[in-house]
């Protein structure tokens, strides 16, 4: 049961960390608003459910698009700063500002929605809507399926299309990519759109897992960063590895702590991911995918 939760959580973290890593690679912006992107998705899903009776699973394509728009808007508002070569601190502050704006919009919207629906919508879950197969929760299958589909799509895009190869080329060396005739600006734009879209989808699934309030984004952002950093912010595959490491250890360690010391320890989940993140930064600052494994092997064998 607890493993089920760990896998679901990891699946969602992978989607979110993927977006964070993607935009970090292309534009060098650590995006503190990534968590709130997901919550935008959650509230859109809630709206579709309450007003039109659409099951959240079916609204995922819509969330993909809504998320994409949020990502696009973020990039457009960061663009003047990126153009001016603003320092990374300034860019981080800008994403904090965007996060705050999103929080304001989500909070305001949740109250407006409450008035339309006629009951408070500030807090909600979808878990009660979920189906189950063989005693497993539907979200386990759906989130796994979504991750597999999106990753497969991303793989096809990145490795099998011309645009994808260009995207990878500009991630690695933007100025060389430019000399090949690639419009690096387009690939940046695309990465932000995709990042938002992935987060939007994650947002539709998140309420099956945990209760959502407008500020939930600020809570999950720690785990997202931990996942990306542990995996390595410089490689897309890092998000995948980091997502599962953080997701599973956060769930499992917290669970066993709670078993041993009582339910009060359930809140220590974020501390677990924080500790793993700091340990990674100390041992391998560029994360698991940033480690030069050949060197490590050599060192191990030479001893």
């Amino acid at each position: 049961m607890i493993i089920e939760g760990a896998i679901i959580y990891s699946n969602l973290l992978v989607l979110l960390a993927l977006g964070l890593t993607l935009t970090y690679i292309t534009t060098n912006v650590p995006n503190f608003a990534q968590g709130s992107y997901a919550i935008v998705g959650s509230y859109v899903a809630l709206t579709l459910l309450k007003l039109f009776g659409i099951c959240p699973y079916l609204s995922l394509p819509v969330l993909f698009i809504v998320g994409a728009i949020v990502g696009l808007l973020t990039y457009l508002s960061l663009k003047p700063l990126i153009k001016r070569n603003a320092s990374v601190e300034m860019l981080m502050i800008a994403t904090l500002a965007i996060d705050l704006i999103l929080l304001g919009v989500i909070g305001a919207y949740s109250e407006v929605l409450s008035q339309i629906v006629g009951s408070t919508q500030a807090k909600f879950v979808f878990a009660n809507l979920d189906f189950s197969i063989f005693g497993f929760r539907g979200i386990l299958f759906v989130s796994t399926l979504v991750v597999i589909l999106l990753l497969f799509g991303l793989y096809l895009l990145l490795y099998k299309t011309k645009f994808g190869i260009a995207l990878r080329a500009s991630m690695e060396n933007p100025s060389l990519a430019q000399t090949m005739g690639i419009d690096v600006e387009k690939t940046r734009l695309f990465s932000w759109i995709l990042s938002g879209a992935l987060a939007g989808v994650a947002g539709g699934l998140l309420p099956f897992m945990q209760e959502i309030v407008p500020a939930t984004g600020d809570l999950i952002i720690i785990s997202i960063f931990a996942a990306s950093i542990v995996g390595g912010l410089r490689h897309i595959s890092g998000a995948l590895i980091g997502g599962y490491i953080i997701g599973i250890s956060e769930s499992l360690i917290t669970y066993y702590l709670a078993m041993a010391f009582g339910a009060g320890f359930l809140v220590y989940g974020k501390v677990v991911s924080l500790i793993i993140m700091i340990a990674t930064l100390l041992i391998a600052p560029y994360g698991i995918t940033g480690v030069d494994w050949k060197k490590v092997r050599k060192r191990l064998f030479s001893q």
Partner: peptide, 13 residues
């Protein structure tokens, strides 16, 4: 309060 978040966020930008 939500409005103030939006305002201060925009002000920062």
């Amino acid at each position: 309060v939500w409005l103030s978040y939006m305002l201060f966020g925009v002000l920062m930008l």
